[in-house]
């Protein structure tokens, strides 16, 4: 079983970024050239940008009618300059809501790592892009860092709400986004590991309790809160704050917690928010 720590050590040893270690290893795994890998990742980044833009326009509604238009509200407030939390945080919230809304409304998104958690990574990366003016190439590299960590999570635990609850979806996305944000901001490979660990620790135990079994409530808003956790974790790691528990052990703990989580709280809509009086009423009204 692979460990993220192995990549950190290799990157430190060879003076590379995590993303470089990841794509070099994937060239062999997939038998594809560097150019092919970057072209494929570039398509993903393009769709991420399109889904942010589509969601911010706020025109679509989901099949149930519960979701749509909230990203536009946050973006409007941000644009008026009265945001309580400042431009970066309100920006990441608006973008994460945007992509998650597009997903709920049957629009085109990039699963990252899943469809239900598709808002976190684009929101964080595009917000860092706006803040630090990083290049397209750096963004693509950061996506390899995120994906590399995702592979480790998928191998050691899982990235599926049905198997591990929301911590496995939004939790994994937040960890992946945090690692990518640190690399984009010029942090060290070690700091990507710390950021990922801090982000995932913050979401351990989060259950998957979707109302009506739909990827809408609470999934869309959890994308936004997950994205802010990713930025907070990145900020701590970049300041030199260490995670007491290393990332691979955090991932293992997440997997274990997922196993211990009852089935009623793993995407089956049989517990939690799904079975609140309002959750039941929404389900009955729609289905």
């Amino acid at each position: 079983m692979r460990a993220y720590e192995d990549w950190v050590i290799e990157a430190e040893h060879r003076g590379l970024k995590i993303s470089e270690v990841v794509y070099q290893s994937e060239m062999e795994n997939l038998q594809q050239s560097e150019q092919e890998l970057f072209q494929r990742m570039s398509k993903n980044l393009k769709v991420m940008r399109e889904s942010v833009a589509a969601g911010l326009s706020g025109e679509r509604r989901s099949l149930s009618g519960l979701v749509g238009g909230d990203a536009a509200k946050v973006e409007f407030r941000r644009k008026t300059g009265v945001s309580l939390v400042g431009d970066q945080i309100s920006g990441v919230i608006a973008r994460a809501l945007a992509v998650a809304e597009v997903n709920a409304c049957m629009g085109k998104i990039v699963a990252a790592p899943t469809a239900g958690s598709c808002g976190v990574i684009p929101a964080v990366l595009l917000t860092v892009e706006e803040t630090l003016k990083v290049s397209e190439q750096e963004l693509l590299l950061a996506l390899f860092t995120a994906a590399g960590l995702g592979m480790i999570i998928a191998e050691r635990a899982n990235v599926s709400g049905a198997e591990g609850g929301c911590q496995a979806e939004i939790g994994s996305a937040a960890a992946m986004a945090a690692a990518a944000a640190v690399e984009l901001a010029g942090g060290t490979p070690r700091q990507t590991a710390d950021a990922a660990a801090i982000a995932m620790k913050s979401m351990l135990g989060l259950v998957c309790d979707p109302v009506g079994g739909l990827v809408e409530v609470p999934c869309v808003k959890r994308n936004a809160t997950g994205a802010t956790i990713a930025l907070a974790a990145a900020e701590m790691a970049l300041s030199g704050v260490r995670s007491a528990i290393p990332i691979d052990e955090v991932i293992d703990a997440m997997g274990e917690i997922g196993q211990q989580m009852p089935c009623t709280l793993k995407e089956t809509a049989q517990g939690g928010l799904a079975t609140t009086p309002t959750g039941r009423r929404i389900r009955a009204d729609f289905l």
């Binding site: 994937e26 890998l37 709920a104 990039v110 592979m151 990235v159």
Partner: peptide, 15 residues
């Protein structure tokens, strides 16, 4: 898995 299982696929949502 490979990197494109974790960042990808491009798909129409929601699930």
């Amino acid at each position: 898995s490979n990197v494109f299982d974790l960042i990808g696929p491009i798909m129409v949502g929601p699930s």
